[in-house]
């Protein structure tokens, strides 16, 4: 990292000379250790798991063996994948709508004090509603398709985004605001040139917070009433005592959640190139 910084500070003609390296980077072993040790632990854990289940020390109904879970993937993989797409669709739709809504309301808050004073108390009150408790009502209103799941995901993602975006939009420092003021910038220019770029780190905080939440909320809603999706599949397999399938589905949920979160992290890096070269 120090080499990158130094090369920028040195004019192009001098850039050919190697930049001094302040401290030695991690050695090969130190880098490999980061991957090898957790991998070893994982393998050891799996081996122990396979041993206690295969030898019958723990009943297969209580804990499916890793081998059984793998074979569940091969027999029911297609079904799991098809239902995963349903859950993913619900989660992403809720994620997108909820975050957009939160951001738009935050922008409205920044520009109109009246809007903020009117809506903020209600938004806080709505946040206090234990949404899971009213899922039966939502299903009554919206049916047992994707709509209530998306609604819940929207409900859960919108508030963290609202709070973070509102803070982010106001985070630009006074000097920058004064600069734009002396330039006679319009509120719209201030929004697009200063407020929104300054809020990007805050927006990603909210996105990271809600990336997993929207997956969880979709699954919970599917448990209660649905005819498709991973949550539905878990209850179905559970009722049929297909324990390896239950585990396979749960692992799929985890992988999906990780992918959504990972996508947000990658997007964050891409969205803030100025942070990549930051020394701190």
């Amino acid at each position: 990292m120090s080499a990158v910084d130094a090369s920028v500070l040195i004019p192009a003609t001098a850039a050919a000379t190697p930049a001094p390296v302040a401290d030695e980077g991690p050695t090969r072993w130190e880098r490999a250790r980061k991957v090898v040790l957790p991998a070893l632990l994982l393998v050891a854990g799996l081996a122990l798991w396979q041993y206690v289940t295969a030898t019958g020390k723990i009943d297969a109904l209580i804990l499916a063996s890793p081998a059984a879970i793998v074979s569940a993937f091969s027999t029911s993989g297609g079904e799991i994948l098809a239902n995963m797409l349903v859950t993913l669709g619900e989660a992403l739709a809720g994620f997108a709508i909820g975050n957009t809504l939160g951001l738009l309301i935050a922008i409205a808050f920044v520009h109109s004090d009246l809007t903020r004073r009117t809506i903020y108390p209600l938004a806080i009150a709505a946040e206090a509603v234990p949404i899971v408790a009213i899922i039966p009502v939502l299903i009554l209103w919206l049916g047992n398709g994707m709509a209530p799941k998306i609604f819940i995901a929207v409900f859960l993602t919108f508030f963290p985004m609202l709070v973070n975006a509102y803070r982010g939009l106001r985070s630009a420092d006074t000097d920058v605001k004064e600069l734009l003021y002396t330039l006679s910038a319009s509120p719209r220019q201030v929004l697009f040139m200063v407020r929104l770029p300054a809020s990007v780190p805050f927006l990603f905080n909210a996105l990271k917070l809600t990336a997993c939440t929207c997956v969880v909320s979709s699954i919970v809603a599917e448990w209660l009433a649905s005819s498709e999706g991973l949550g539905f599949l878990i209850t179905l397999y559970g009722a049929r005592y297909q324990i390896p399938e239950v585990w396979a589905t749960a692992l799929t949920c985890t992988a999906m959640s990780l992918c959504v979160f990972g996508a947000v992290v990658v997007a964050e890096r891409l969205a803030m190139p100025w942070r990549r070269t930051a020394s701190t």
Binding site: E178, A185, P197
Partner: peptide, 24 residues
Amino acid sequence: LVSQQSTMLPWRKILGNVELGLEV
């Protein structure tokens, strides 16, 4: 106005920062 803090927008490169006034 030029203030004590150079008041740069950290997400813009130097060219983008210098262009700011003209952009506005």
